[in-house]
Amino acid sequence: MKTAVNVEKITVAYKKTPVLQDVTFSIPEGQLVGIIGPNGAGKSTLLKSILQLVPKTAGDVSIKGKTVQQQRKLIGYVPQRGDVDWDFPTNALDVVLMGRYGHIGWFKRPKKKDKEHALSCLDKVGMKAYADRQISQLSGGQQQRVFLARALAQDASIYFMDEPFAGVDAATERAIIALLNELKKQGKTVLVVHHDLQTAEEYFDWLLLLNKHLIASGPVSKTFTTDLLQKTYGGKLAFLSSS
């Protein structure tokens, strides 16, 4: 199997001490990957440093054998919610259309084709009816879906999603997971920061267990063990029903 993401000894420090240290893993193509770890473990930081949104002190990242800069078009990113101005004068369709900008290129306008594509992405997340809504008039879960649709519209082959399930209801979560599985079927790789251990085993093929250091990276069957999970959470998991 080819490698989608290869990370070698990433170390990131915001202040004096590193928040990620010597994190090394590599993920084969076509996997649905869950990134799991306690609050402050550095999950968001890991995604951001892979995408070069924060500087690394040390370490290498390659995406399908090339640098991130060379592969921007292959990468889709769904940030942890709430960083945008929801009052921005733009509607749901417009936001999704922004996902196409990487393909449209400088100075050009989105074509009809792009709009149709954006609409179909909205449709996939069940938000077609809201295409014309100003984004502040959507509920939190709906906003999340619009952002997901935007990532879909990017037509990336590797997706990085920071807690896409935060604040969405169970039905939406199911819908999103179905969608991610469909992406997987198309041979795409999806990395998802996830908090719910109850569902982790069921959702993902591959797990990254992270707590400043990498605890484990591998297929769910090998990594979703009480022992490793306990280690990830410093032995603080009181209760783990699924194992």
Binding site: N211, K212, H213, I215, Q230, K231, T232, G234, G235, K236
Partner: peptide, 10 residues
């Protein structure tokens, strides 16, 4: 440190 993070609670 690595081990400590794994067994913090103990």
């Amino acid at each position: 440190e690595n081990v400590y993070l794994m067994y913090e609670s103990q």
